[in-house]
């Protein structure tokens, strides 16, 4: 006891004690790549079918609603996604198909079916920074579904935060170069990643000039058939005042998705 008191008084014990919190934080915070790896390793199921409602509201409060049915399936590391528009009638039967390859050097293949043309049109996959059919998410956002484009960004963990009562790691991602930043339309992304389930709960985006662009909130995250699933994404574009609400429903991971849905023929036939 005497020895302990002496040590406190002389400071030999004081220094380690003061260091404990700092060491503890540095030890507990996973680095950015580890957070990204954890997000991407999250179980998404091999295939999923779900309804997706998109409500787009402009700065004057005028709302447009799109009802869709969306399917996604993994083939090893290759991912195929297809979205069929169901309502309203003027966009019904519009369909979008993307084949996403794991090799970063290989462009994704994308097709769009426009019922007015009755043709499946090949579209450039480099449009990934373009906004997806009038929403506030880009083609790349839609494709990644909150996963991380590992090759597009460098990452670091900034600290901790809390969103909707859930503890999060703050992950900062910066495009690897100017060209990539222009392609993506983002100069910086800050995501709040749930430290327990590795789901992104909030994402803030800055444009390539450093101005705050938009904020996304991922809400109503709960397990569906054992898989953590977001049911609501709210995106607010700070530049335009436009916002989009994505609502997922009728989610099914268990019954599989027919391979033929991910073909140009299926785009043409519709659901």
């Amino acid at each position: 006891m005497l020895s302990l008191t002496r040590q406190i008084l002389t400071g030999t014990l004081l220094i380690p004690v003061l260091l404990i919190p700092t060491i503890s934080v540095a030890f507990e915070l996973p680095d950015g790549d580890e957070v990204a790896r954890r997000i991407n390793a999250r179980d998404e199921g091999v295939a999923v079918a779900r309804n997706l409602t998109m409500q787009m509201t402009d700065r004057r409060g005028k709302t447009r609603t799109r009802e869709t049915r969306a399917f996604r399936k993994y083939y090893g590391e290759e991912k195929k996604t297809v979205i069929f528009y169901l309502e309203p009638s003027n966009v019904r039967d519009t369909a979008f198909l993307t084949w996403d390859y794991p090799n970063a050097d290989k462009d994704d293949d994308q097709w769009l079916y426009l019922p007015a043309m009755r043709k499946v049109r090949r579209i450039s996959a480099s449009d990934r920074g373009d906004y997806f059919l009038g929403t506030d998410l880009t083609y790349e956002d839609i494709k990644l579904e909150t996963r991380i484009g590992l090759e597009d960004y460098t990452r670091k963990t900034l600290g901790e935060d809390e969103v909707d009562g859930h503890h999060c790691y703050l992950l900062e991602s910066v495009p690897v170069d100017e060209k990539t930043a222009k392609e993506l339309g983002y100069g910086r992304v800050e995501q709040c990643v749930d430290s327990k389930i590795w789901m992104v709960r909030r994402a803030k985006f800055w444009d390539i000039k450093g101005k705050q662009l938009k904020t996304s909130h991922f809400r109503e995250i709960r397990q569906v058939q054992g898989i953590w699933t977001q049911h609501r994404i709210e995106v607010e574009n700070h530049k335009t005042g436009h916002n989009t609400l994505f609502i997922f429903s009728d989610i099914d991971y268990q019954h599989g998705v027919d391979d033929e849905l991910f073909t140009q023929t299926a785009l043409r036939r519709g659901l």
């Binding site: 462009d107 293949d109 994308q110 090949r122 579209i123 450039s124 996959a125 480099s126 449009d127």
Partner: peptide, 11 residues
């Protein structure tokens, strides 16, 4: 035929 090359689509 059609194919995408970066920003371009040739058809």
């Amino acid at each position: 035929f059609s194919r995408a090359f970066g920003d371009w689509v040739i058809r």
